[in-house]
Write a protein that binds this DNA or RNA. Structure first.
Lengths: 110, 110
DNA sequence: CAAGAATATACGGATATGTGCATATAGGCA
DNA sequence: TGCCTATATGCACATATCCGTATATTCTTG
């Protein structure tokens, strides 16, 4: 395969990963994994300032990790792909196992 | 669960994700998924400057995503957990499906 | 111990990221 | 139209990330 394309793909791959690489976005994604939510709901449930939520949602939208749908004045966000949660769960499992030494945190994850 | 611990865990979770969030590190991880490699091998195979490889390996080491083992003057790096590759593959699949519109890249990924 | 190979780190600079605060935009409705 | 609610964006700033180049460190072997 063309190596220009190859590196372009790796770049996009990294951008998806970067989409997961922030605590607030992880919380947003898990929240959306329960059910679609609008910005205000996310903001109150996660105790995050509304502009902050909006900006993180923008990042996730640009990477097509969430989908936005307007209903009047409300915008409902949906998880674009369940495999994002699957990946997050896998990584959390890796974390848990790699943490077997730090008793406190490991217990909390058990 | 204690919410201080909770947010500490989410923080670590995000750091693992950030470990994946760079094209060069993705290449390194996939290379290591084939078999353990030393720094020079990674550097030549991936055509990356040696200090660059070392620094990325340090990041992966700190997050316990790879394991280093010295053999004399050579340091052999091993993937710490296969699930990291599983997660990367999942995310690449998400990327492929989300890209169905961009024919060129989508083809390259097929 | 000296010399060489393999690996790691320090420094400097360019760019990116996360955030608070203020403000803009968009849609519904009196 | 004017107002209210919901959401998005601009600005400013602090911090983090990535990288090239040069240099340090570590280990082996003569």
């Amino acid at each position: 395969m063309n190596s220009v394309l190859e590196s372009e793909i790796v770049q996009l791959h990294a951008e998806i990963c970067a989409g997961l690489a922030d605590p607030n976005r992880i919380l947003i994604l898990y929240e959306l994994s329960q059910s679609p939510r609008n910005v205000t709901e996310l903001s109150t449930n996660l105790k995050m300032a509304q502009p902050l939520v909006s900006r993180h949602l923008k990042i996730l939208r640009e990477r097509r990790m969430v989908v936005a749908k307007r209903h009047g004045t409300v915008v409902e966000y949906t998880l674009a792909d369940r495999r994002l949660i699957k990946a997050l769960d896998l990584l959390r499992a890796v974390l848990r196992d790699g943490l077997s030494k730090h008793a406190e945190l490991a217990d909390a994850l058990a």
